[in-house]
Amino acid sequence: MLEILAFSTLNGVLYGMLLFMLASGLTLVFSMMGVLNFAHVSFYMLGAYFGFEIERRLGFWPGFVIAPIAVGAIGAAVERFGLRRLHRLGHVSELLFTFGLAFVIEQLVEMIWGKLPVDYRVPPSLDFVAFRLFDTTYPAYKVFMLATAVAMFAALFVVLKRTRVGLVIQAALTHPEMVAMLGHDVPRVFMLVFGAGAALAGLAGAIAGPALVTQPTMAALLGPILFVVIVVGGLGSLAGAFVASLLIGLVQTFAVAMNGSLAALFGPVAPPGLGDLWQVTVAQLAPILPYLLLVVILIVRPTGLMGTRET
């Protein structure tokens, strides 16, 4: 039991931090520009494929560095030449643009790398057992993922709280016009934030690719969960996104590890009409738990855990 608890916590935190790498960029872009970027998870997928492609040619570490930068550059270009031009047409146009972009990226990925998963592997330098706890081993690669996510979180925090650019970003979250009137180039800040958000998503993809599966559906699989995270956390709230990421990471990993069902709790004989439901285990429910959480949060607290605006 203690073993399950320890490993589920570790995995939950890891999954949560990975979600946060995506949610942080998405929520920052949303609060600055008012755009919910549907293509954000596509940047994550691009990060994984770029990482794979570079790993094949140059090795894992060059991919780890170059893939996020390349994805960030693509993100900045998307803002500069796409979203910025659409801005005056309103949010619906921008939303549709990112929606379309997600499809385009998915199709391009299928055309280039095919529909089947690619063989993106954990690098040999990280392919060993990090530690052993109660006879269960924990791979070094997962420790590396966790360390990367924590380092990224620290870097994001320092940039936002301790640098001038961070101050400009924080101020532009609520008063972009005023920030411009003080002589700061707000559109350029938007582009940088969009690019940085894309780079973070790319980094998440590059490190998650070998651990999870790198395939063209990986964006569509993660997208809904990501939206749950930022709505539960509160649209536009970075702290909320952090808490919600960890919460959903933990809920999902713990649920998967649990085999309990109503039958196990109250005996095998189901009350009339509840036959099938009686046998369902918590693990089987795991995939829908985030959405249940979403519904509950929207009913109890429509602004999300730490948000200030109605979602």
């Binding site: 924080q170 101020a171 008063h175 016009e177 005023m178 009137m181």
Partner: peptide, 10 residues
């Protein structure tokens, strides 16, 4: 501006 537009969180 008339509305002052202080950055409230800073």
């Amino acid at each position: 501006p008339e509305t002052r537009d202080i950055f409230p969180g800073l």
